[in-house]
Amino acid sequence: MSVHTLFVTLDILGVFVFAISGAAAALQNRLDLFGVVVVAFVTACGGGLIRDLCIGAIPPAGLSNWIYLAAAIAAALTTVCAYGFVERLAYPVLLFDAAGLGLFAITGSHKALQYGHNTELAILLGMITAVGGGVGRDVLLNRVPVILQKEIYASAALVGSSIEVLGEGFGWSTTWLPWVAMLVCFALRIMALKYGWHMRWFAMPHD
């Protein structure tokens, strides 16, 4: 498998699992089928749309390539049809969200590098690709976005994209580098949820 094919595959896989996250969240909020599909698509492609606009990949892949829309719709319909199974998973939205976080942190940073951007921007855009869709989902569902809370979320994506970008800079093999970066991001997010790791919370002083 070529490097390009690998990252396109990971990108589509990221769309699918993030769309499941969005669809599950929409079903928990009792949206209709159209609402479920819309939230699934925004969750799956929102971060990628922002990334592509920033790097000059116009029109964005999420709008110009039918596979992205098809993957999001397929994930949404799968979630609707198999929601009983999805619901039985422990924290289904968080599980699929963590998986999508790792996948998009890697593909987002790699695509930024492919368009000739520097290390710092590639790392930042990898993080934005990973968290942008989740922000869109939370805004549509009238929730405080996860990245604005004390949870380790954007920082996990930042670690994953940093490993990918720095590894590519050092010439590490793309056979294993994306998988390592993705798993580190996923594991960091899951362990933070399991063990209650979080960023410091700043409270306003009492009068």
Results as ranks from 00 to 15, higher is better:
Leu89Met: 15
Pro205Asp: 11
Tyr91Cys: 11
Ala154Asp: 03
Leu177Met: 12
Cys54Ser: 13
His117Val: 05
Leu49Ile: 14
Leu166Gly: 04
Leu148Val: 14
Thr78Asp: 09
Thr107Gln: 03
His4Cys: 02
Ala75His: 06
Gly47Asn: 03
Val165Lys: 02
Ile73Met: 13
Leu27Glu: 11
Lys111Thr: 07
His110Phe: 11
Gly46His: 06
Leu27Gln: 14
Leu49Gln: 01
Phe104Asn: 01
Ala75Arg: 05
Met127Thr: 09
Trp172Leu: 15
Gly22Leu: 04
Val135Trp: 12
Met191Asp: 04
Ser64Leu: 09
Ile73Arg: 08
Cys45Ile: 12
Asn118Pro: 00
Ile163Met: 14
Gln114Tyr: 01
Arg51Met: 07
Thr175Arg: 02
Leu121His: 02
Val38Ser: 05
Val8Ile: 12
Gly134Asn: 09
Tyr83Met: 14
Leu69Met: 12
Ile106Lys: 02
Ile58Pro: 00
Val146Gly: 03
Glu151Val: 14
Val80Asn: 08
Gly133Leu: 07
Gln28Cys: 04
Ala82Phe: 15
Ala44Glu: 06
Gly116Phe: 09
Leu113Val: 04
Val184Pro: 00
Ser155Cys: 12
Ser173Arg: 10
Leu177Glu: 11
Val180His: 02
Gln114Ser: 09
Lys150Thr: 12
Leu158Asp: 00
Phe85Gly: 13
Ile12Thr: 01
Ala24Asn: 10
Phe41Pro: 07
Val184Tyr: 11
Glu151Lys: 15
Phe186Trp: 14
Ala105Arg: 02
Thr5Lys: 08
Phe18Cys: 06
Pro145Gly: 12
Phe202Tyr: 15
Pro178Leu: 08
Gly169Ser: 08
Leu193Thr: 02
Pro145Lys: 13
Thr129His: 06
Ala23Thr: 08
Arg51Gln: 07
Gly102Cys: 10
Leu193Lys: 02
Gly56Arg: 03
Tyr153His: 13
Gly46Ile: 01
His110Lys: 11
Val15Asn: 04
Ile106His: 03
Ala25Tyr: 11
Leu124Thr: 09
Thr119Ser: 08
Met1Lys: 06
Gln149Ala: 14
Val159Cys: 14
Ala203Gly: 05
Ile123Ser: 01
Ile163Leu: 15
Val15Lys: 01
Tyr68Leu: 11
Ile163Pro: 00
Glu168Ala: 08
Asp52Gly: 00
Thr9Ile: 05
Ala192Tyr: 13
